[in-house]
Design a protein around this nucleic acid. Sequence first.
DNA 1: ATCAGCATGTAAGGCGTTACATGATTCA
DNA 2: TGAATCATGTAACGCCTTACATGCTGAT
Lengths: 182, 182
Amino acid sequence: MAKDRKIDVVILGLLYHEDLTGYDIKKRLDGAIGFFWKGSFGNIYPALTSMENEGLISKRKSVNTGARERIPYHISKKGISALEAWLKDEQASNELRYETLLKLYFGGATDRNIAISNINVFEEDIKRNLAVLNMYKKNLEKVLDEEDHVFYYLTVTFGIDTYEAYLKWCTKAKKLLGQDRR
Amino acid sequence: MAKDRKIDVVILGLLYHEDLTGYDIKKRLDGAIGFFWKGSFGNIYPALTSMENEGLISKRKSVNTGARERIPYHISKKGISALEAWLKDEQASNELRYETLLKLYFGGATDRNIAISNINVFEEDIKRNLAVLNMYKKNLEKVLDEEDHVFYYLTVTFGIDTYEAYLKWCTKAKKLLGQDRR
DNA sequence: ATCAGCATGTAAGGCGTTACATGATTCA
DNA sequence: TGAATCATGTAACGCCTTACATGCTGAT
């Protein structure tokens, strides 16, 4: 498996449950997973090719659903082993790159209203995302007893809890910047 | 300024206050900024060179402090304009890539204890970081009235608030995974 | 008729990580 | 003596984003 290409394990994780095409995988990444991991076509398709060469996954016969051909992939035993090895490996790289915080950190270089305005933009964005996550949560609660849904539920509540913390911080931050005008 | 190379604005933001060498800049990025933005030598030095070619910054005369030469950089008027333009631009890309959440999402592929163990590793990591951030906060509170320190303070409290939310979530998550064993 | 969505892929180019090269000073 | 820190840089390599190419189907 490619050393630094994390999309590989995302693909393996998804294929563990069902055969999927590259397009399907992209759809999944545009959903709930997208809140903590992103992927693009130019990222996914080459990964599928190289993972097939490594024997981690295999092509199933392509299906024509009317539109273009669909090429579903299937996980192999080797692929399952690789997925398990990754899950058991305790080290995980968690990184956030928050341009909003960067702008705030350097906010002293311009008018303070710019900083407040940037916080507002961030706040609106988070509110939109929070609404989506709450919808996911609501749907997941109905099926919490089904296989693996606890895990999906937990990633969604992680998002909700942190986004709610963000919103509280936004309020505090704007208050501090407003009051403390010098 | 390079289109997609965000390290440029980090450098400009830091140079706005004082002349710094590449090494100094790396030190800053290893401190409080590192919680929301990272940088490496192989990232910083080439950026300094290209930004000098663009006239955003300029070399000051190199100083020998005994060890190797130090080459401080100074921000130009053009550099200040670029920094301000970036601050005023409302769009900001905020991305998190949380491998821990990825492992949790796909946690159904192995023993549930693996998932719990991964949460524990994450929790310990967050606790360590939280201790550092609380120290930063304590130090900043003493000098909150000084120029720009409100901004540094706010980025630190952002980190503290979200990390505390993470910890609460960890407790909930482990409880749910423990109880709900099927 | 046209646009959105389905679907697979390639190509260019930039960006970043990691390791390496070099070498002085300070401290244990 | 040896390790850590100071300090600047280069090189290899891989990864990812973005844009492009292609073309069908179904809905408006």
